[in-house]
């Protein structure tokens, strides 16, 4: 199994002019930027604009980014700023400090942005797991219906006795990946 590039590796290569590294970064974080753009109450055309402007901003400022391990936070902040700019362009002037985000009316509260970012990191970490562990984690934690230990063991072709240690081992691997990626 090839070791996936860390953000730091891909960033270093992008700065050196490697367009393939840039493409990998885009693919890695596209769902994160898309989530911010589409949850801001924008039309799809504006969401597309928000999406592209965020990536353009990242590329144009690439030599100024000091900490490439915080790319996800940079993308979330920039996508939100771009989304708010587009919202202000289309919203009528309410005469009530128009253009100023009020925390209780903002379509992208900070808490939601943090959760989106964490979810993106979790999904990236899941993608790095071996297929078996990925299946275990998904069955335990992401299956739409609550399954019993017995049902899960059956899906995995295991006994219920061996399920506990396997689950724990897979969670440990997930945690290692999250630590390696600087998320926990």
């Amino acid at each position: 199994m090839t070791v996936p590039n860390t953000d730091r590796d891909l960033w270093r290569k992008t700065l050196a002019g490697d367009s393939a590294a840039w493409q990998l970064l885009v693919k890695r974080y596209q769902s994160l930027v898309y989530a911010v753009a589409t949850r801001a109450g924008l039309s799809m055309a504006d969401a597309a604009d928000c999406f592209q402007q965020t990536w353009i901003a990242l590329y144009e400022n690439r030599h100024r980014i000091q900490d490439p391990t915080r790319l996800s936070a940079w993308l979330v902040t920039t996508a939100k700023r771009e989304a708010m700019r587009l919202r202000r362009r289309v919203l009528p002037d309410t005469g009530d400090e128009a253009g100023i985000d009020h925390p209780d009316r903002s379509p992208l509260p900070d808490e939601e942005l943090i959760q989106i970012e964490r979810q993106a990191h979790l999904e990236m970490a899941l993608a790095e797991l071996d297929p078996r562990c990925r299946q275990v984690i998904e069955l335990f934690f992401f299956a739409p219906e609550e399954q019993s230990y017995h049902e899960i063991a059956e899906s995995l072709g295991m006994t219920t006795n061996s399920l506990g240690p396997v689950r724990r081992r897979c969670l440990e691997r997930l945690k290692e990946i999250l630590r390696k990626n600087g998320v926990i």
Binding site: Q30, S31, V33, Y34, R118, Q119, H121, L122, F142
Partner: peptide
């Protein structure tokens, strides 16, 4: 922390 409980995945652009 990661809200690992039946949440739908982030959609691809």
């Amino acid at each position: 922390k990661f809200n690992m409980a039946g949440h739908s995945r982030l959609q691809d652009a």
